[in-house]
């Protein structure tokens, strides 16, 4: 896969990003499996057993199987990545993740030529996830990326935060992070990764395709039907926090816009 060297420039340019505090990042979460309030994941996600953990990698791969989390970690190179996170709801944070490139994990399983998309699935454990007793959305949570998006060097599987193991409310033990897409694309507590031929269904677009498209790229020019996406508010700024303009592709325009050359981003929102 592509190494870190190819993106060292853009990453360095983002070095001035001031990360949100540990408290901001771990107390204000959307993880509906544990409840719909922002504080629910911090309050209830500790019920999730994250060790042992394994990820099934299947579909169009050379070496399908159940990969144990510790085996994965022994193969991967974990590094720090400070990324913007923009929620579709209009708030944002800057998060210092630790993780490895998804492309490295996919290479471990060996992607076959016919694969075009990657489908992801979150754990579904009713006895540990108090939120799944209600049909807020269809469970389990599923997400998907086009293969080139998945292989992009900015796309990581995060396993840590501020150099510590990632807390349950943030998607322990491993979660996807796709920094140029709205936060809900960055699926948490992943148990299955499938390489597939066709565009896989995604939880929020199953709920409302009009509001939540497959691509879900951060785009200040394409409004959510119920609110504007032109501005965002950084979490942690207090009661008089000012809104700031949202950046195209969440500020990763240079790195990722080529993935969408010639596409109508309003249609493929």
């Amino acid at each position: 896969g592509l190494g870190l060297g190819s993106i060292a420039g853009p990453l360095a340019a983002k070095a001035e990003l001031e990360p949100n505090s540990w408290d901001d990042i771990t107390s204000y979460n959307n993880f509906f499996e544990f409840g719909t309030d922002k504080g629910d994941p911090a309050a209830y996600a500790s019920a999730l057993t994250t060790s042992p953990w394994s990820v099934t990698i299947d579909g169009l791969v050379d070496r399908p199987g159940q990969y144990d989390f510790s085996d994965i970690m022994s193969e991967m190179t974990v590094e720090g990545r400070i990324y913007r996170l923009r929620c579709v709801e209009g708030w944002s944070m800057v998060v210092p993740w630790n993780g490895f490139e998804l492309s490295d994990l996919l290479a471990m399983a060996g992607v076959r030529d016919e694969a075009r998309y990657v489908a992801f699935e979150t754990a579904l454990r009713p006895e540990e996830m108090r939120g799944v007793s209600r049909p807020v959305i269809e469970w389990p949570y599923v997400e998907g990326l086009r293969l080139d998006e998945a292989l992009h060097p900015l796309t990581i599987m995060a396993t840590g935060l501020y150099g510590k193991p990632i807390p349950n409310q943030n998607g322990a033990p491993l979660r996807l992070v796709v920094p140029w897409k709205y936060g809900y694309k960055s699926i948490k507590s992943v148990v299955r990764i499938s390489l597939v031929k066709d565009e896989p269904p995604t939880s929020w677009s199953k709920y409302s395709a009009r509001e939540y498209g497959f691509y879900s790229n951060v785009n200040p020019n394409v409004d959510h039907p119920r609110w504007s996406q032109a501005h965002e508010r950084r979490v942690g700024g207090g009661l008089f926090s000012k809104k700031v303009p949202t950046l195209m592709f969440n500020g990763y325009d240079q790195e990722v816009s080529a993935l969408y050359d010639g596409m109508d981003l309003a249609k493929y929102h």
């Binding site: 901001d24 204000y28 504080g39 708030w91 508010r233 979490v235 942690g236 207090g238 009661l239």
Partner: peptide, 9 residues
């Protein structure tokens, strides 16, 4: 009211 007090309020 937490780290995002505007929405919470």
């Amino acid at each position: 009211l937490g780290v995002e007090p505007i929405k919470a309020l």
